[in-house]
Design a protein around this nucleic acid. Structure first.
Lengths: 240, 240
DNA sequence: CGGCGCATTGAGGGCGGTCAATTGGTGTGG
DNA sequence: CCACACCAATTGACCGCCCTCAATGCGCCG
């Protein structure tokens, strides 16, 4: 059940048998969500942390006028609200984009982890630091890339992240997000997201059908996007 | 020397005598920087973490074409690259904006902290989580607020952060950042930053002279900015 | 079949960008 | 003490990326 999470953590830290057992014992509570269903609400104080076991979710903040900004996308294997373990009150919400299976782990277990397993703790801290690095790269996209580059950049990022957890074959992955959600993630209107996706299609950089994204030539797309995988803590070759 | 850092951490966690002693013993290495001088370079692998003892600094990423995005501002009392403790390679650089005095602490000491002082470790983790929460709010600003609101929002955020560490009196603080830096933080051009600052001045929302910012009516400015201090982990009244 | 959500397309407009020139403060060398 | 360089702040003119409003197509489901 936790294979994907552990695979992700092992990019940073060799998870020992003891640590693996600790994680697997939980106690986990598995909950399923429908598309668009809220997983965590803004302002909540949490007692459990969430890991995505299957599916795709996003974190978001809403403004007074009802506008929304998506601040992160999360895929299977991601801890999607480890911040809730540290922050007393959630500054953002989490919602499912497409059906999701979520594993919930009591904060109490994480406290035990901190007392007993400093190296595993560090791996979890690393995970939140990686999250923050992704936040920073998104800021670069929003501030200094045009819509075309920005969308290309996200598609590159997701390709790598899906590859890590073994959920991409032949440079293809499943992306349940709607164009509305993509717009809210980029700070763009739906209309413009649509136009840019079509441009990327016409340019032969992506193939997009149903919820599937295929990137025929990742190196080319990365070039267009100005994508440098360093922020994802990748060394050397990024694509297979 | 570490009073401001400890004051900040105590917003979250009561720092015990032992923890305080541990932090103060260091070993610290104090370094001074001139305005615009780099403190940490992009791509570095670090062996020390930096705390700002005095001054103002920013984190940034640069793009191929030389464009720059500032991803965070840091004031006295901030750990400005705790991420470098976790990430093997820095995804961003850090530079001084105005003269800075920096305390550098070996990562070795932080490792010891993780082994011996889980509660202090958690306070440091909290600090990085707060940092990430600020990143998210900046994303909201860049994606969903116009330039006027965005600048007002940052000025509100800095007011609170300066107040926490006791560096603001009468709603006034010292902001060494140039309009160029502000533009790079917002994803705006210098020209437009200038126009918006003048508009805020004309509206009587801010008084800006030299490097000093005064906010005559914080409640009013927060209203204009759509500022909700929850993301800074504030409960109740935000202003004094 | 009608309703609904999402994708798509067109027309027109505004926020903020680019380019360029001017001002003013500061530091430096003659 | 002044000339000059340099950097940040300021102002104006023009332009384009992306937004808003609106309509249409399309697949899915009750």
């Amino acid at each position: 059940m936790l294979d994907l999470l552990i695979r992700k953590l092992e990019r940073y830290h060799r998870v020992s048998a003891e640590e693996r057992q600790f994680l697997e014992e939980g106690p986990w509570r598995v909950v399923e969500y429908q598309s668009h269903e809220p997983i965590v609400r803004e302002g909540d104080s949490l007692t459990e942390a969430c890991v995505i076991l299957e599916g795709f979710a996003y974190r978001f903040k809403t403004l007074r006028q009802g506008a929304r900004q998506i601040t992160a996308f999360h895929i299977a294997g991601d801890f999607c609200d480890l911040h809730g373990f540290l922050l007393e009150q959630m500054d953002h919400g989490i919602a499912a984009s497409g059906p999701c299976k979520i594993g919930r782990l009591p904060h109490k277990t994480l406290h035990e982890c901190m007392e007993r397993l400093p190296r595993l703790t560090r791996a979890l801290w690393w995970d939140t630091a990686l999250d923050a690095a992704i936040h920073r790269e998104w800021m670069v996209s929003m501030g200094r890339r045009d819509a075309h580059e920005q969308i290309a950049h996200l598609l590159c990022e997701l390709l790598l992240r899906f590859q890590w957890v073994g959920l991409s074959e032949n440079n293809t992955y499943v992306l349940p997000a709607t164009q509305i959600e993509l717009g809210d993630a980029f700070g763009l209107s739906t209309v413009h997201v649509n136009r840019m996706l079509q441009r990327l299609r016409k340019e032969g950089l992506i193939i997009l059908t149903g919820g599937r994204v295929t990137i025929p030539d990742p190196v080319q797309l990365m070039k267009v996007a100005g994508f440098d995988p360093t922020y994802l803590q990748v060394r050397g070759r990024a694509t297979r």
